[in-house]
């Protein structure tokens, strides 16, 4: 017997064509990069000490940024999702500013901040920031944290407050109810926020260029490497580094999604 055609095939075909254009664009970009470079270029890039330093700094700074973003994203997301307080709308709007601001403006604002009296005081009495490694992390964090806050807010909004209320009646304090019940339920949101922050930090360029500079073996991360290689005419090396970034991003996305879904019955 011939399999019957789904009567809604036309509808789904239209959706697939409309949405598929974007998928094709992503695949086309990656394929174009692949064809433009060669394994020799990739190996050459990996053997370059400058690029190896940039890879190491990128991995470390992105991981620290993701942790710091969760550190602020979880409490702020919870407060915005669960409580009403004076000035909430203002705070909510303010938290979107790093998302909508041009990246160069964020870098410039950070640079100016650390030229003010409190900024200079901090650098003189604690540690140097501007044009040094901490500036890379701060530049990445300034943007990534906003995404973590948004993700965690949506996550907590989707979790019923009822389980926390039950925990309170069973003897929990507010903090215990959050730690023992709400936070474990927000596990997938936490992973998503961490992934998003990490990936956003990896791609950050504008603020780092302004606030940290692009000094080799010092503040150079993969995104600045692409620009540096491109600016001196080494397009192949730039493309090779771009591919490394794509691979890193894909590996992180697959790992976190797989680990995040484990135990949920979805994988």
């Amino acid at each position: 017997m011939k399999p019957r055609l789904n009567p809604d095939w036309g509808y789904y075909l239209c959706l697939s064509i409309l949405g598929g254009v974007y998928v094709i664009l992503i695949v086309a970009m990656i394929v174009a990069d692949l064809f433009y470079t060669s394994p020799e270029h990739l190996l050459s890039a990996l053997n370059d000490p400058n690029i190896r330093y940039a890879i190491m700094l990128s991995l470390i700074s992105c991981t620290i940024t993701a942790i710091l973003s969760l550190w602020v994203g979880v409490p702020m997301g919870y407060l915005l999702a669960r409580t009403n307080f004076w000035g909430k709308t203002f705070i909510d709007t303010l938290l979107d500013v790093p998302i909508v601001l041009p990246p160069l403006v964020i870098g410039l604002s950070l640079l100016i901040l650390f030229q003010t009296w409190p900024g200079r005081f901090f650098q003189e009495h604690f540690f140097g920031v501007t044009f040094q490694v901490p500036s890379v992390i701060l530049a990445q964090f300034s943007v990534s944290a906003a995404f973590a806050v948004r993700t965690m807010r949506v996550t907590f909004e989707q979790i019923s407050p009822r389980t926390e209320q039950v925990a309170l009646t069973l003897g929990c304090t507010r903090a215990q109810a959050f730690w023992l019940v709400a936070l474990p339920e927000a596990r997938r949101g936490l992973l998503t926020a961490a992934t998003l922050s990490w990936a956003r930090a990896l791609g950050e360029f504008g603020p780092i260029l302004i606030f940290s500079g692009a000094t080799r073996m010092r503040t150079e991360v993969l995104s600045t490497t692409v620009w540096l290689e491109f600016s001196i005419g080494h397009l192949e090396a730039g493309i090779a580094v771009s591919l490394l970034m794509i691979v890193a991003a894909v590996v992180v996305l697959i790992l976190t999604r797989t680990l995040g879904l484990r135990g949920t019955g979805l994988v």
């Binding site: 009822r162 209320q165 009646t169």
Partner: peptide, 14 residues
Amino acid sequence: IGYVPQDGALFRTM
């Protein structure tokens, strides 16, 4: 007190 809400509200991660 003991409290049983309408939907049970079990702790799904446990």
